[in-house]
Amino acid sequence: MSSIGLDPVLLRHGNYTLAMDVTLGSSVLSLDWTAPDGRSHALLVPSVADSVPFKTGCFVMAPFANRIADGSFPFDGRTIHFPVNRPAENNAIHGLSRNRKWVLAESTASCLSTRDECRDAASGYDYDLTQTIEIDASGVNFSLTITNRSAKKLPFGLGYHPWFTRTPKARLSFRADTSFTRSERGLPEVACDSAEIYDFSAPVALGSMRWLDAHFANWSPRAAVLDLPEMAVRITLSAAGCLGNLQVFAPDDRAVVCIEPVSHVPNVCNRPAFARFGDLTVLDLGESLSGSMRIAASQLESSQTSSTGDPNA
Rank of each mutant, 00 (worst) to 15 (best):
N148F: 01
R175S: 12
N245S: 11
G157L: 01
D50M: 06
L300G: 05
V9L: 08
F164L: 13
P74I: 03
L96K: 01
T181S: 15
V60W: 04
Y127I: 00
P83A: 10
I295A: 04
L104A: 00
A69K: 14
L24D: 00
V22W: 00
A296G: 08
R185L: 08
L289A: 00
D21V: 10
F180S: 03
L104Q: 04
S302I: 15
S194D: 07
G25N: 06
Y127C: 07
F200A: 02
I197D: 07
M293Y: 03
R175V: 13
V52F: 09
G186T: 13
S263E: 00
V233R: 02
R12M: 14
L300A: 07
I259W: 06
L43D: 10
C269A: 15
H215C: 11
D37G: 05
E134Y: 02
S179L: 03
Q247M: 15
A92H: 11
S27T: 15
F64M: 03
D279A: 08
A313N: 15
R78D: 15
G5L: 05
S3A: 13
V140A: 00
D50W: 01
P272N: 13
T236Q: 06
L104Y: 01
N85D: 13
R100F: 00
S194E: 07
A273P: 13
S26R: 07
V9N: 06
D116I: 09
A122H: 13
F82A: 05
F54R: 06
S107I: 14
A223G: 07
R100D: 07
C192R: 14
I133N: 08
R254N: 09
P261M: 00
R115Y: 01
G241W: 00
A49S: 15
D70Y: 07
L29D: 04
A275C: 14
V262M: 05
S40G: 14
P87T: 11
W102D: 01
D177Y: 13
N141C: 12
L43E: 11
V233D: 03
E106V: 02
F82I: 09
P46A: 05
L104H: 05
T114S: 12
D76F: 03
S113C: 11
V52R: 10
L226I: 13
H215V: 10
G157M: 04
L44K: 03
T145Q: 11
S208I: 06
S143F: 04
T178W: 13
A191V: 05
S201R: 15
D50Q: 10
V140I: 08
D310G: 13
G139I: 06
V84E: 03
P188W: 02
R271K: 14
N148A: 01
E189Q: 15
A176Q: 14
L187Q: 09
T308P: 10
P36R: 08
D252M: 12
F64L: 03
N85T: 06
I197Y: 08
L300H: 02
A62V: 06
G241C: 01
F156Q: 00
V257D: 04
L104F: 00
P311F: 08
V262Q: 02
L10F: 09
R294S: 06
E134M: 08
D70G: 08
H41K: 08
F64A: 01
G286I: 09
S2Y: 13
F174I: 12
T178M: 10
T34K: 12
S26Y: 03
L206C: 11
D32E: 13
